[in-house]
């Protein structure tokens, strides 16, 4: 009964929202183009152009890591603080692996290690090419972390060196902020792209953006790996 009422309420609300949005003349279901929106200006360059206002060929990247880079800084902070929180909640002084209840055979161990390398490399590739192709630091970092997850799942004795992750996380984050502050001092604004933008479409272009994306990739990778480690270990009682 309660479930039914809840269903009714949720459905009713959904229908009402849809109706109200349809009635709303200002709300466009699909627009014609970006005219009239702020994002009009984001795509203001051409392929192969030299030294444009913002460098990346991938416009989304130019928003994430350049125009609205501040959001991204906040975003990695969210991830940072939640990984800290997970460590605070689950971590302890002495940790041991969670017993998964199976022992991997030789094939699984070796195979997963081989796969680990491939996934890691893909992650690194995606990260480095973030300003040219779909992808970037976040998916790249997640891929790096997933390669870690693979090792954790495939091998019941594996434990990564958490300390190393921590250093990586900290250094990457600090560098991000420092790059921002460097922008404040070397140029005029925080997080300003003070390097040469190069040619749209080149690997070595877009100034600090690839740099930031690599840092993000490292940070996201190490943070998610840390979270995974925390979930797959338990405190020694």
């Amino acid at each position: 009964m309660k479930n039914f009422l809840a269903l009714l309420a949720a459905l009713g609300l959904g229908v009402l929202i849809i109706l109200s949005l349809q009635n709303n003349t200002l709300f466009n279901e699909y627009g014609e183009d970006v005219t009239g929106r702020d994002s009009e200006e984001y795509g203001d360059r051409e392929y192969g152009e030299e030294n444009p206002a913002s460098g990346p060929a991938n416009i989304v990247t130019s928003i994430v890591a350049d125009f609205r880079s501040f959001d991204t800084l906040g975003e990695i902070t969210v991830l940072f603080v939640s990984s800290l929180g997970v460590a605070l909640l689950l971590g302890g002084t002495k940790q041991k692996r969670l017993d998964l209840g199976f022992h991997p055979n030789f094939m699984l161990r070796i195979g997963s290690k081989a796969l680990f390398g491939i996934i890691l490399m893909t992650g690194v590739y995606v990260t480095i090419h973030g300003h040219l192709t779909p992808g970037g630091g976040f998916p790249g970092g997640a891929m790096i972390a997933s390669s870690m997850l693979l090792l954790y799942l495939a091998d019941d004795t594996f434990r990564a060196k958490i300390k190393g992750f921590k250093i990586l996380e900290s250094v990457a984050g600090s560098l991000y902020v420092l790059i921002g502050i460097a922008g404040l001092f070397f140029a005029d604004y925080f997080l300003e792209n003070f390097l040469n933008n190069g040619v749209v479409g080149d690997l070595l272009s877009a100034g600090i953006i690839p740099l930031i994306y690599v840092l993000i990739g490292l940070k996201v990778g190490s943070e998610i790996s840390g979270v995974i480690d925390n979930f797959l270990t338990e405190e020694v009682v």
């Binding site: 929106r37 994002s39 989304v60 959001d71």
Partner: peptide, 10 residues
């Protein structure tokens, strides 16, 4: 519009 895509990433 690229902006929502960037937002959704966040």
């Amino acid at each position: 519009d690229p902006l929502p895509q960037a937002l959704v990433l966040t």
